[in-house]
């Protein structure tokens, strides 16, 4: 089987804004391996969500090509392709139909893609939603009657229900408490192993990245500035920007403070001690 599931080749994306041009992604090339979890981290506004949208076919790249299983992704995608690549959007509220109850939203996704036995669909959905920690009663609510984190879990369950090959997860656990986050991440890990899934995991939470990713791609100003194994990123990153990021991670234990400081004390852009030297008093 082919090792590369998705290949980005010299991707550039610009947006016209009046007379202005925004270069959201600037000549990015990157291979994603089947079965891996690739984390994409970096500056806010560096083009991460734009990249996700292009992989999903929501936007077309201005130039460059995206290959999925060795074939160029077409502008208009057929059903099997749409099913094969799923997205969990950064803002779950805007991706759920406000007029449809949660369970019905998921049911629709399965109906569209004719996944599983018709009679079993309802039950499958119930099980999946329970696995992400939503009760049967919550499944029958409208999105507006759920908390931020509950909506986020609905979006994850919907993407998983579609039995895709590649999952693009844009800040999938940022609205979850760390206990529920652990449950969801463990579920994602389990399913990845079981179904040979591939994840592109976009997040600002570097503590999560350290514990879930195989490789990390670091973006800044629309460019890929570093791509390395996760261990390397957190022990001896190549790029000063990466080092600055790591130096700014908010942490909870003294061991982490030590690690962070050992990487960030070279005068780079790190500024973890901005908050009035509180660190020293602990």
């Amino acid at each position: 089987m082919n090792k590369v599931i998705l290949s980005l080749q010299n991707i550039t994306k610009t947006f016209a804004l009046g007379a202005h041009e925004v270069r959201a992604i600037d000549d990015v090339s990157l291979d994603i391996h089947r079965g891996e979890c690739l984390a994409i981290v970096g500056e806010s506004g560096s083009g991460k969500s734009t990249l996700a949208n292009m992989i999903l076919g929501i936007f077309e790249p201005t130039s460059g090509e995206i290959l999925f299983n060795n074939s160029v992704l077409p502008a208009v995608r057929d059903l099997p392709l749409r099913r094969a690549i799923q997205l969990v959007q950064q803002n779950p509220l805007s991706s759920l139909n406000p007029r449809r109850k949660i369970a019905a939203s998921l049911r629709l996704a399965l109906d569209v893609h004719s996944i599983g036995d018709k009679n079993e669909r309802q039950q499958k959905i119930g099980e999946l939603l329970e696995e992400v920690g939503l009760t049967a009663e919550q499944q029958n609510r409208f999105p507006s009657a759920l908390s931020g984190g509950q909506r986020q879990r609905v979006a994850i369950a919907r993407a998983l229900a579609c039995q895709s090959e590649l999952l693009v997860l844009d800040e999938p656990t940022s609205a979850l408490d760390v206990l529920v986050q652990a449950r969801v991440l463990n579920l994602l890990n389990e399913l990845r192993a079981k179904r040979q899934l591939t994840y592109i995991f976009i997040t600002h939470d570097l503590s999560v990245v350290r514990n879930i990713a195989d490789r990390v791609a670091v973006f800044r100003h629309g460019k890929l500035v570093e791509l390395n194994k996760v261990e390397k990123i957190f022990s001896s990153p190549d790029h000063a920007y990466t080092r600055g990021l790591i130096a700014a991670i908010p942490v909870v234990t003294q061991d982490e403070v030590l690690l962070r400081d050992s990487l960030g004390n070279d005068g780079s852009t790190g500024n973890h001690n901005l908050l009035g030297n509180k660190e020293e008093t602990r």
Binding site: L179, N211, I212, F234, V252
Partner: peptide
């Protein structure tokens, strides 16, 4: 206590498995 121990650490160790 459970919350505190469920925070993923930048020193590694994987995603903690603590009941929610």
């Amino acid at each position: 206590q459970a919350l505190m121990s469920a925070v993923p650490r930048i020193t590694g160790g994987g995603i903690p498995n603590i009941p929610d």
